[in-house]
Structures are given as structure tokens and as C-alpha cells.
Amino acid sequence: MNVVAFLGGRAWIWSFIATALVWLATVAFTGGTGGGQILTAALSFAIFTVIVGIGQMFVITTGPGNVDLSIPATMALSGAVTTKLMDTQNEMIALGVVVALGIGIGVGLGNYLLIRLLRIPPIIATLSASFLVQSTAIAYGRGLRIKPPPLLADFTTAQVAGVPVLAACGIVFTVVMGVVLARTLYGRSVLAVGQNMRAAWLAGINVERTRLFTYVLSAMLAGLAGLLLSGFSGGSSLNMGEEYLLASIAVVVIGGTSVAGGRANVPGIWGAALFLYLLVTMLNTFGASAGLRLILTGLIIIAVITLAGGGEQQKR
């Protein structure tokens, strides 16, 4: 089999190759020590990017212009509400999960209604909605940091033989979402709508329902990520979602999903999330100052996107 054709059909391989290179550079610098711990840490942190990244991937796949900018605000609101609700009690965790998903459903519905009723681009709709959501989180959370229930904290930080339990669950979840995308009616509809909305509509696909589900799915995953992240980091904070605005979009693009829509890449999300984390680790190991680290992170993300995202040129 032709190697180029093999690689070309599997864009996600590139993100894993980049991840491996960055990891090797880091380990080479430290002289071989800490390679395992770095991978464990990468898995523990990457999982949150993966969760929101999958939601973002479904949104972006529904076609050009579709993007969810309300993810950070949704994470902050979900974290603030659920930690207060659970109030460090283990028996409240189930309710917390339900509420986190409920917040997601609410935000997703709101996003979709704004897009549909006001006929405004999703970027503006989700951004306007995120102002309201963020404000609610600020007013509700009041900056108080409440500890998560011990069971939730244990679950989100547990490791078996160096593999974080949460990350293992995340891999199973990723496989499930991959199957949903490739094999179910909903997943196929998402791809069809992304390829050509009009053709999908003519083929009898319920375009609006597909978009509605997709925005709700993305917000639900953001809500869940907010809950898990507040468990992982010992409480919620109002700006904990901030970095996931860029990260959620970047992992989708770096992972090989088409920005023009209609073509998604599930494994690439993992490769890209690990790459982003290891990149920062590498720069830290090299002793880069805060300013330099920011500059290099930005430049490398842009460079990777330029190389990865520019594949199919000027389709219009």
C-alpha cells in the first residue's frame, strides 16, 4: 500500500507524530527522567480538552461558520452551580451530574434559539449567550471556592498503573462518539449537513433538528467537563474554562477535522489535546519565561493549523 495515501487518509496520525516528537524532545532534555510521569500528567489534563473538543468537533462539522464560543462560560457556570449544590457530600454527586448536564441542555437550547430566531451567525450567538452565562456564574459563584465531594475528587484524580481512570473512561467515550458519528442516523446527518446543507435538506434530513442536537451536545459536554474539572482541581473557579476557548477549537483543527465542515476526525482530538499539553510542558522544561511561553504556544498553534488546516484549498 502506498505510504503517502495511507497517511493522507489518516490525518490524525500527524497529531500523534507531533506529540511523540515533543515528548521525545522533553525527555531528551531531562536526560530520560520523568518521561512516564509527563505522559500520566498529559493524559490527566488532556481529557478535559478532549471532552469539550469532541463537542466542538460536532459543532464545527455541521458546516462553515458553526462554532461554539460559550464553552468556557458553560464550564464556569456548571462548576460553580454543581460544587455549591453538592456541598462536599458524596451522595449528591449523581444530582450534580444531572444538573451539570441540565445546564448544558439549557445553554445549548439558548444558543440554538438565538441562531434560529435572530438569524445571526453562531459565533455571535454563542458569544452573546456566553456573556449572560458567565455573568450568571459570577453572580452565583461569588468567587467562593467550595471543595468537591471527596468521591468525585478521588475519581477524577485516580490512577491505575500510571493511567488516569478518567482518561481511560475518556477513551471509551471517544470510541462511543466515533461510532455515533460514523454509524448512527444522527452522526451521519451531522456529516451530511456539514457537506452540503441544501443537499442534506433535499435528501430529507431534518437539518434544524440536527443542528439543535449538536449545539445541545456541545454544551452538555462543556457542562460535564466543568463538573469533572472542578473535582479534579479541588473546586471550581470562574476563569477555569478560559483556556478551553482556544484549546477546544485548536484540537479540532489540529486533529484533522475539516474547518469547512462535513469531515470529522475523532482520534485526532486525542492526539491534538496531548500535543497541546506536552508543548507547554516542553517549554516549561526548557525554562522559557512566561512571555516567551505564550509567544511560542501561539506561534506553534498557528503553524500547526497552517500546515494541517490548509489541506483542502479554496473549495468555494
Binding site: V67, I123, I249, A250, V259, T297, G298, I302, I305, T306
Partner: peptide, 12 residues
């Protein structure tokens, strides 16, 4: 490229 990704990267 999508301008939001490039500009977000440049913001860093």
C-alpha cells in the same frame, strides 16, 4: 484558515 483560530493564537 478560520480567522477565529488564527487570531486566538495571535492573542497569545
Amino acid at each position: 484558515l478560520p480567522s477565529i483560530v488564527v487570531t486566538l493564537g495571535m492573542s497569545f
